[in-house]
């Protein structure tokens, strides 16, 4: 139970980081933390205490296996997260080239 709770804490840390930080890079780190929290939770959903790897062989009974599906899905989710992080980081670099700052309170060309 405490594992799930820690997952929630991690997710909240990420959300706080996105909402409250002014530095673009810190916001990107916040996004990464939220994604990790969701991925971690996904793996935990399929996890079993003292479970074993889900390998099916002739001489083994199917007993006490962890659920392999979330692990496969989380791999995909991590790759997607990497793509997002790479794209946002490159946008942040371009923003820095144009504005000369990472501070979001000074990057305010758009309003209304």
């Amino acid at each position: 139970m405490s594992l799930y709770f820690l997952c929630l804490v991690l997710f909240s840390v990420g959300l706080y980081c996105i909402l409250r930080k002014r530095n673009l890079i810190k916001i990107i780190i916040g996004i990464a933390i939220t994604e990790y929290a969701v991925n971690l939770f996904f793996v935990l959903v399929g996890y079993k205490m003292h479970g074993r790897a889900p390998i099916h062989a002739e001489d083994q009974a199917i007993l006490n296996m962890v659920d392999p599906l979330p692990q496969a899905l989380v791999l995909t989710a991590i790759v997607i997260g990497l793509a997002i992080t790479a794209l946002i980081a490159s946008i942040a670099i371009r923003v820095y080239e144009k504005y000369g700052t990472f501070d979001i309170t000074k990057i305010r060309k758009l309003k209304g």
Partner: peptide
């Protein structure tokens, strides 16, 4: 240009947060 990059950053942050929520919803349903 300046405006495009700023808008894209904002959109990307909001969009990836939305995706995290959707994935979390899928996890709960799974």
């Amino acid at each position: 240009e300046q405006e495009e990059l700023e808008a894209s950053f904002k959109y990307a942050v909001m969009g990836s947060l939305a995706s995290s929520f959707i994935l979390l919803g899928i996890v709960f349903l799974y």
